[in-house]
């Protein structure tokens, strides 16, 4: 393998890892705090991408206005899921999982009917290609990677230093004790879905600019997210960041050197290994 090829693999992996991380953060946040595996998250990504597409590409609204609107739509859809899917099931992990899969398929089928068969694309914000050593990367990807880093840091700061962030961590670590501190758990759950939905919306817009928009676009990133969240330890933000980068890199290596089919198999093999050695994932803890 030449140095250029290695560099290319590294750059590709870093960018994809950061994108997967962004989607996975929304999943791990909800799991950590509510012990709910949110299967609908991928559909939030997809619906937000369509929202941004229609608002900006079709109706000519400025992207920077379209994005927050899409974040609102996504956050609102998240709240609907929380109120009408997960709360009635009392956040039971298995029931939520099953109903989530059902809802996800329903949303996807409905989207095919609604949006039609042709995939769309959100125009790139930063066109052009960058050369690093002998390797190439589009400016849009560099921009995307930067946004992912900024959002991960913002999420960390939010959880660490703001009042709602602290309430989230308290509920995550001991819901009953949080109740005794006067924290309104239902409100915290709503905040969690809002934050997670907003992250999904940004993820959808970024994915839509790089890879086009169609009703299936959330499926693969969501599957990757589950692998990442498992490897990192369900609910661990740090674990999700590290596992996201790790899976992005490992995918880039296997897909480039061995071919695309193998990436998922290798992902699952890594997951199996890690779960055997550390059943709670790299940074998981007892719940």
């Amino acid at each position: 393998m030449t140095a250029t090829l290695a560099l290319q693999i590294g750059i590709t992996g870093l960018v994809m890892g950061l994108i997967y991380m962004l989607i996975a953060l929304g999943v791990t946040l909800i799991f950590g705090i509510m012990r709910v595996v949110n299967f609908v998250h991928g559909e939030l990504v997809m619906l937000s991408a369509f929202a941004v597409y229609y608002l900006s590409a079709e109706w000519g609204i400025n992207f920077w206005l379209a994005l927050p609107l899409a974040m609102l739509v996504s956050a609102f859809t998240g709240i609907l899921c929380q109120k009408f899917l997960f709360r009635p099931l009392r956040y039971d992990i298995l029931n939520c999982f099953i109903i989530g899969i059902g809802a996800s398929f329903a949303i996807r089928s409905g989207s095919w009917a609604l949006f039609g068969p042709e995939p769309r694309a959100i125009p790139a914000l930063v066109p052009g290609v960058m050369r690093i050593g002998g390797a190439f990367v589009s400016q849009q990807r560099v921009f995307t990677a930067a946004v992912c880093v900024v959002l991960a840091v913002a999420l960390f700061l939010f959880l660490q230093y703001t009042r709602p962030g602290k309430a989230m961590r308290a509920v995550e670590q001991d819901p009953e004790a949080a109740l005794l501190m006067g924290i309104n758990i239902e409100n915290v759950y709503v905040t969690v879905f809002v934050v997670s939905g907003a992250l999904a919306a940004v993820g959808g817009a970024l994915l839509g600019m790089l890879f086009g928009v169609d009703p299936e676009m959330g499926a693969e990133p969501l599957l990757k997210s589950f692998i990442i969240v498992q490897i990192g330890g369900m609910g661990s933000i740090l674990g999700t960041v590290i596992a996201g980068l790790f899976i992005g890199m490992s995918d880039s290596i296997t897909e480039t050197t061995l071919g695309g089919e193998l990436a998922f198999i290798i992902d699952f093999a890594i997951l199996m290994l890690i779960l055997i050695v550390r059943p709670k994932g790299l940074f998981g803890y007892d719940v």
Partner: peptide
């Protein structure tokens, strides 16, 4: 003769591979 997974998200790896 290169192959990719239908519906894959990222095509950089496949493209890199073809170009070698």
């Amino acid at each position: 003769n290169e192959y990719f997974k239908r519906g894959a998200t990222d095509f950089y790896p496949t493209a890199t591979r073809v170009l070698t």
